[in-house]
Nucleic acid binder design. Structure first.
Lengths: 219, 219
DNA sequence: GTCTATATTAGGATAGAC
DNA sequence: GTCTATCCTAATATAGAC
């Protein structure tokens, strides 16, 4: 919308290595996620990107727009994967296995992402909700809930599952995967984890959590 | 430390209704929790408290100190309750019942508290961790983990529980209680909740979640 | 103890040279 | 496209009268 070149074609003429605009977005991602939108400083983003502050405005016009770009990118990394798993034809137990594994793997790479998204969400609900609706179009979630509901109903008929609503099921899976990362700084203190302690905890969780959740489904 | 009068005795002389200092702290709580430390404005706090901006500095010296007071108060409202339940002599199933009920009741009253704490934690880890250690002294958590571990071990002997570590057990209970509130704005969108929809979801959860968690404990 | 200035700085944004 | 220099507002903080 505002950017001169970017997404359409190649970089126009003489200059840097791997795209200045991209370097700026990466730097912005790093700084916004660590400090939050309100705590982030354009100067720090410029420093991390190794460019002049003015260039941020050249590419993204305002801090507001830049932060939106970052949030959009972060959010888009969050939902689709699990939505796809949950909407699939897999058995519920298989969905648990895959969702847990996918979440823990992705979040281990970006541990502060949940904290960032949750913080933004609570501090700027209005702005963020528009992004979310645009991003995840309501038809999709409705499909997911329909699908899970149907699976639960069928298994209730067969007597192979304990009663639970699709929403509560989904919430339990997502909560147990995402929350430990959102609360990571607190968890590290309360469980007295050393440098690699949290990672080991997550690896243990990767094994134990699916079993825990699947046990809870049994009638 | 910095406050003129306050916590020691009564208000000194002539003035307002129910304590100006308290009114300021309440206002600060409201604003900081909604906007986050970095997004909050001293002016807005003054407006909410119905006093002049300068008074905030009179009582709390700086924004930094005021925000610490707020965070300390918020955090202290969070841990103790459940720590006490978990450290008690109750059976694990009974602990689940009480913890879920306590959490959901308290968080329903202050739904944005988890989002605030998580946001602060990820954006100011250093500062917040000192508060947490001071607040929850490590001996206490160690006692909780010891207690839960002992209970699990005993029940493993008796064959009345599925294997799980105390840390993972605790994490599962806390995650499933707290996360829905932390992610509330997202949940409302994704589940397409109306005005009272989220509250009804929580009331449903108050019944279903304990059963879910207890089913997961069965061998 | 509470208010009315006012000081001061920080940080987002723009103009304009190269 | 990238930099230097500058503008300008918003926000924390303080001085001082009442």
């Amino acid at each position: 919308m505002v950017k001169p070149d970017s997404q359409s074609g190649r970089k126009p003429d003489e200059h840097s290595d791997d795209g200045t605009e991209q370097r700026i977005l990466d730097a912005a991602d790093e700084v916004f996620v660590r400090r939050g939108t309100d705590g982030a400083r354009m100067q720090e983003i410029a420093d991390v990107a190794g460019v002049n502050k003015s260039l941020l405005h050249y590419y993204y016009r305002t801090k507001e727009l830049l932060s939106e770009a970052v949030f959009r990118k972060a959010a888009s990394r969050f939902l689709p994967e699990v939505v796809q798993i949950m909407a699939s034809e897999l058995e519920l137990e298989e969905k648990i296995d895959r969702a847990v594994d996918t979440y823990l793997t992705q979040l281990s790479r970006r541990p502060y992402l949940p904290g960032y998204i949750i913080g933004e969400l609570t501090h700027h609900p209005d702005r963020m909700l528009t992004i979310f609706t645009a991003l995840a179009g309501n038809r999709i979630q409705r499909l997911v809930l329909k699908k899970i509901s149907a699976q639960i109903d069928a298994r209730l008929e067969a007597g192979t599952i304990a009663p639970i609503t699709a929403q509560q099921f989904l919430m339990n899976v997502i909560s147990t995967c995402v929350f430990p990362f959102a609360a990571r700084p607190m968890v590290i203190v309360l469980f007295e984890f050393g440098p690699r302690g949290f990672d080991r905890f997550i690896e243990q969780r990767r094994k134990e959590l699916p079993m825990f959740l699947k046990r809870a489904l049994r009638p």
